[in-house]
Design a protein around this nucleic acid. Sequence first.
RNA 1: GGGAGAUUAGCUCAGUGGUAGAGCGCAUCGUUCACAUCGAUGAUGUCAGGGGUUCAAAUCCCUUAUCUCCCACCA
Length: 1016
Amino acid sequence: MPMEKNFNAAEAEARISALWIDRKVGAAGANAKPAAEAFSVMIPPPNVTGSLHIGHAFNNTLQDILVRWHRMRGHDVLWQMGTDHAGIATQMVTEREMALGQEPNRRTMGREAFVARVWQQKVKSRGTIVDQLVRLGATCDWDREAFTMSGAPGAPAGEEGNFHDAVIKVFVDMYGKGLIYRGKRLVNWDPHFETAISDLEVENIEVDGHMWHFKYRLAGGETYEYIEKDANGAVILREMRDYIAIATTRPETMLGDGAVAVHPSDTRYAGIVGKMVHLPLCDRLIPIITDEYPDPLFGSGAVKITGAHDFNDYQVAKRAGLPCYRLMDTRAQMRADGAPYADAVLRAREIAAGAATTEAEVDALNLVPEKYRGLDRFEARKLVVADINALGLCVSTLVKVIDPETGSEHLTREPLVDAKKIMQPFGDRSKVVIEPMFTDQWFVDTAQIVGPAIEAVRSGATKIIPESGEKTYFHWLENIEPWCISRQLWWGHQIPVWYGPAAEIDGTLNYEIGNGGQGVSIHWEKCVALEDEAVEAAKIAFSPLVAGQIPVERAVVVVSDRNEAIKRAGSTLDDATAPVFIWRDPDVLDTWFSSGLWPIGTLGWPEQTPELAKYFPTSTLITGADIIFFWVARMMMMQLAVVKEVPFKTVYLHGLVRDAKGKKMSKSLGNVIDPLDVINEFGADALRFSNAAMASLGGTLKLDTARIAGYRNFGTKLWNATRFAEMNGVWEGHVTQAAAPSTQATANTWIIGECAKTLAEVNAALTDYRFDNAADALYKFVWGKVCDWYVEFAKPLFDGEHAGETRQTMAWVLDQCMILLHPIMPFITEELWALTGTRAKLLVHTDWPTYGADLIDAAADAEMTWVTTLIDEIRSARAEMRVPVGLKLDMVATSLTAPARTAWARNEALIKRLARIETLTEDPAPKGAIAVNVDGAAFAIPLAGIIDTAEEKSRLTKACDKLAKEIAGLNGRLNNPNFVASAPEDVVIEARANLEARQDEVAKLQAALTRLAEIG
RNA sequence: GGGAGAUUAGCUCAGUGGUAGAGCGCAUCGUUCACAUCGAUGAUGUCAGGGGUUCAAAUCCCUUAUCUCCCACCA
């Protein structure tokens, strides 16, 4: 059945994907030669509820190119596939789905049921991303698909695996080594998801903000002289004041102020340091203290200190021993819990006066006056500003107001509000303003494990490309902060920590913080007797208990297993028969804690599996530069901490894929390109080729559909060259040959050499991760050499004495095109492979060629260059002289050197056909002819009476002018003694040769001009 | 505030010391039996500006401008 005119991507891709999956072509070790070197790649696990966006398509294309290339070379390849449970994102997606489906919300259904519900979501979504990878042509090992929460409690059938065990083991081990600790710290709190998040999950965005100025009056009606000086020390303001002015962008936090701080060198306030000021609206006095933090040149130089709601203030408060009063609840609403304000403020005054207290008591104290309790923080802000203004304590300005009714003017005092750009922290998922919050969290003491990760890159054990990535990596790691790893979510690896025993608490117990952590109370005797069943049976209904009542720090049990926790807790009691209550930490681990273990976790660790031995450390990680901190650096730290080895030898970082104009793709801009749309329109191969072509190191990735269309056309071009071969019987009896055929015809010898050059270029490019160079080399070869020239040469050759070898050569060359293009364009090449010749294997498992430069024949190269140049020159001259394309012309050779004569003789049929020349005779130059000059030969095409001599004259003159310029340049260099003395010899020789050639050309052109003049 | 990168043809981008490149777009021509998702031909650049190093600079150095990204607690 003859080939269709075009490749039907939609039909063929589905069929070929299915074939690859069915044959398990991507299975670990598939097509590996005996004792082959290993090549392993870990897929950056996409979010299980996500879908493939254009960045994934790019990222996975590069991985697949490498993997296919190594697999064809017979290496033992593993491309480990899998997905990430993506805590916040997945919980968010599931809750959204639940809301749409009118399902009960997660609080109503409870933790266990909710987690089961998320698992359903996971199972449902998982297929999406897999299908999309399949459409892209990814040859992962599908049977090894991993999941960062496999094997977790509650995992349904089909989600077995031991990733959870690995995560828990690492947590327990790291805790045992003192690398993980728990502490009350100011953390970034996401009020939407009601969880702590790490620094990295905060996006600082510049927004329009405002700065208000408040007056805090000195206690006891005291006054002082306020003197303001300019930069030269001249007094510009001198007045008596009974207040200190502070500036704030967050007025609502003033309710929790513990002090006002000024810089110790600030002479304006030196006289009032140590005095107390009235905190407006609060009926509290706070001291004026000194600290290095305030900048005397900014604002009034005085800063209100709210230790529980600002990272800087927290540091100041710690240094000064100030209490940090938490003002908001987990949803960032002003607290409504605890004792009435009047009682709370009394206690606060006692504490301020030096009464003994605890961190827990301070945290429990609600210093929000009733009026503001329960308000959203932004509502509270407005109210606080209004109330302070009403008290006359806003720094205000006089504003002229014109009454719109009467037209009369009057002056009014308005709060001074500076409009100001401020950097505001937002949750990267929730997009709500992050609130610094004082809470108990778990941390990895990164400072202790960062060293080996830095050293590994410094020593080259792991190489990051492009190199600029290393700088970013070092900069972050050298300034690393503790990593907050606890999240107040339900979906994730629950932290393997039990608190207790709490034998002294009678009855039931619930440990609840924020969004409803679930406590478990367990009867010790029963548990010992009945093991797991009893543990389940011992769960009882809980009544609310205020957080903080449980003395958690007193007894923390960190083990990997609940029964073990029960035993350990029980063993600490004197009375072994007494009931023991323990409860588990309700928090889960940061997703990145588990994905940080991706390389070893997917290979079966902590079991010493054969895969772990073979494929770890992995070869290459291809990932986005945007997750170098989130993931790459953490994998480095974690793997080095846990198994003392780097997780990968090379890290290839790429940028964000942008639209054709370089804009980020976003739904709101409407410039999102869906890879599936692209695949549907142009085919997966075109998308993949585009991805490869734009993957220059460190370059920006702008995806233009016009370019994708171009590469689709490129596929069609190869298709039709193959079809041409088919129509000429090239494939009849063709069996895959590793070795190139032996050849007589120069064109055949030449194209085989071009193949060898291309193979070398592609190998070099892929070795250096220059996917763009590989794509470029293949494009130029297939289109520019094979299709533009070789196929054309083959036409006359098929009619000549070398027809047989030409068929063999064409078959071999097209085979090489398919093989070399396969890693980048796997579908169309696999299809062509199947449609042509006799094939022992699928193309995906066909041997990558190993031929070398010995196939490049310099003489054939030179001869074909001469031929193609001559054809180009004739075509160009014809076109410029407007000779009709179809017209066959006679040509005269006016001079021919011996090599030129041979080249002509050996390729006469080719030249005549491609340049549309009827005959060639050796004669003196006729008058009225088009001149065509090439190296070693001068030709003339007599067209007296047909051509416009003026036009030919202008053409030749133009060429002469251009040459004259080049000659002048070359002469300039060669006449410069410094050039001849300093430049490398080959450069000088080349320049001389060039000069000679140009002069020769000019001479020929001038001869032609002379002849024109004679008839002109 | 710190750091990284970019600035080359109308557009998107290659090009790390030796006579400026590709694709797309544009113009002219073309229905000869692989391909109009094509072919042939052509036009288009003070390689951001300025200075320096060098026999030689798009390429190395300095500087200015503009842009992008990352990190950062200025109330």
